[in-house]
Amino acid sequence: MCGRFAVTLPDDAMAALFDALAANDLPDVPNYNVCPTNQISVVTSDEGTRRLRPMRWGFLPHWYKTPNGGPLLINARSETIAEKPAFKAACRERRCLITCTGFYEWTKTPEGQRLPWYIYRADGAPMVFAGVWQDWRARDDSGDEFTTTAIVTCAANDPMSKIHHRMPVVLEPDDWGKWLGEEGKGAATLMRPAADDVLDYFRVDPAVNSNRAAGAQLIEPLDPSEI
């Protein structure tokens, strides 16, 4: 699963990373505490032209009458994405890339205290998730319209399973074109856990337990004396 993440890469660097044309209304970065329903920067491909675009994190199926018309769909399970009514069309036709510096996951003590962990690429490179997206328009008089997205998740690899049983699908650069549909079929083969040596993690301050927390200190390793 992925319920919170951090983005520190500037817009121009993100566009260069993907060789994408950047929109002029991208969300502000850095953001060390990206939460569901926030706007995030997402890469799509239109006939081979990649575009870096803002989207609402929280997928809205077309039948939702309002943004709160059903469960908040921030993740899509790889095992069922091709069959679930909410995601099956997007899985075939509207795949995207979502980049971050790292993401957060939580474990619990026997007493129920939530302990946050920060997960990042061991090689220091930006992390890129598989995603799907959907345009949505309100079915009432509000006139609301959103372009929305969800992160694809899979079973955790062995290191990640010590923290959580799920993890985002992490794509390597050679896989980006296939996931975006630029290289024909085969995207389904990419929905697998990252190799065991791709990610690393450390404990961070419980301040990030609040979705209002902000600042670079959120991704700093917790002092061993405080663990």
Rank of each mutant, 00 (worst) to 15 (best):
G3A: 11
G3T: 06
R4P: 00
A6C: 14
V7A: 09
T8W: 01
L9I: 12
D11A: 13
D11H: 15
D12Q: 14
M14G: 00
M14W: 02
L21N: 05
P27L: 08
P27D: 11
P27Q: 09
D28N: 04
P30D: 12
V34Q: 05
C35V: 14
T37A: 12
V42I: 15
T44H: 09
S45N: 05
S45Q: 07
D46T: 13
E47F: 04
G48I: 05
T49Q: 12
R53F: 01
R53G: 01
G58R: 06
P61E: 07
Y64L: 08
K65N: 10
T66G: 03
P67S: 11
G70Q: 06
P71D: 12
P71G: 12
T80Y: 09
P85H: 04
K88W: 05
A90G: 10
E93H: 15
R95A: 09
T101V: 01
Y104P: 03
Y104W: 08
E105N: 03
P110K: 05
G112N: 10
Q113P: 00
Q113K: 14
I119T: 15
Y120V: 01
R121V: 06
G124D: 12
F129P: 01
F129N: 01
G131H: 07
V132Y: 01
W136K: 02
A138D: 07
R139K: 15
D140P: 04
D141E: 15
S142V: 11
T153E: 04
P159Q: 12
I163N: 03
H165E: 14
H165W: 04
R166I: 06
V169A: 07
D175R: 15
W176L: 02
W176Q: 02
E182D: 15
G184N: 13
G186Y: 06
A187I: 00
A187R: 11
A188D: 14
T189G: 12
D196G: 05
D197R: 04
D200P: 00
D200F: 00
F202L: 03
R203M: 15
P206W: 06
S210D: 06
A213W: 01
A214D: 09
A214V: 05
G215H: 08
Q217D: 14
P221K: 10
L222T: 03
E226G: 00
